[in-house]
Computed example of a mutant assay.
Amino acid sequence: MKSMPATLRDYALQIANHEMGHYVVARALGFETGDVTLKVTMGLTHHGGASITLTRSISSIDAMKEHLEARIMVLFAGAMAQTLPPRHSPEKHVDKSKAAAILKGEFGAEQDHAKIRELRYLLRNITYPDTDPASSDSIIAELTEINDRLWLRTQQIVEELADTITGLAGVLVDRMVLVDLWGRAGDSYEVVLTGEVLEGLVPVQAIPALSVWE
């Protein structure tokens, strides 16, 4: 098979890191996971996804808060993981300013950001039910506290699991194939790693169970 051009591979690895960031952190926080997909084109556009099951038993307000916090962290994790350095770099630090830019839509993660905004308000409404709805300063402060706390915790987890994330991203990209288009070479590389295949990988089996709190 014709090898992927170097520029395209670098781009694919960034997006693979993003999707595996969602996947790995979701598993670490107790979500059921499924397939991870990725498509990149010669024009450096992409479409990817990590299947995460959101159905779970929630029988208390505390359980609801923990679920919302975990879900927000999974959404943060994609942008953070996308900024991780190459797999073999000794330093595994998130580029926080770049991750924030990714979430704000500069690199195609605006859907994650929109979901985070909605969930953050819901979490604030549950966490601070007695705040006067007309007190905009208090509400902004509460939203900021929630955001900053979950952002920091997500950064800690992504950096702790950076080798797993970048390693699995490499597996994903290594399995990408050039898609033929009606008998002629297409312009996109694609891959689907099924949940079953992922479950069989040693790095996936070794993902630790972590808490939304330290």
Rank of each mutant, 00 (worst) to 15 (best):
M1C: 06
M4R: 06
D10K: 15
Q14D: 15
I15M: 15
M20W: 08
H22W: 09
V24K: 03
A28F: 14
L29D: 10
G30N: 06
T33L: 07
L38V: 08
K39Q: 15
M42W: 00
M42I: 02
T45C: 03
L54M: 07
T55I: 14
A63S: 10
K65S: 03
A70W: 03
F76D: 03
A79F: 07
Q82L: 10
P85V: 01
P86F: 05
H88P: 01
P90R: 06
K92L: 12
V94G: 09
K96N: 08
S97H: 07
A101Q: 10
K104F: 05
G105M: 04
G105D: 01
F107S: 15
A109K: 05
E110Q: 12
E110W: 06
D112F: 02
I116F: 09
L123T: 05
L123F: 04
R124Y: 10
R124F: 03
R124V: 01
D130S: 13
T131P: 00
D137V: 06
A141T: 09
I146D: 02
D148P: 01
R149N: 06
L150Q: 11
I157K: 08
A162M: 07
A162P: 06
D163C: 06
R175G: 13
V177K: 12
V179H: 04
D180P: 13
D180S: 11
D180W: 09
G183D: 04
D187F: 03
S188A: 07
V191G: 05
V197F: 12
E199W: 00
L201S: 10
V202R: 15
Q205R: 14
A209E: 14
W213C: 00
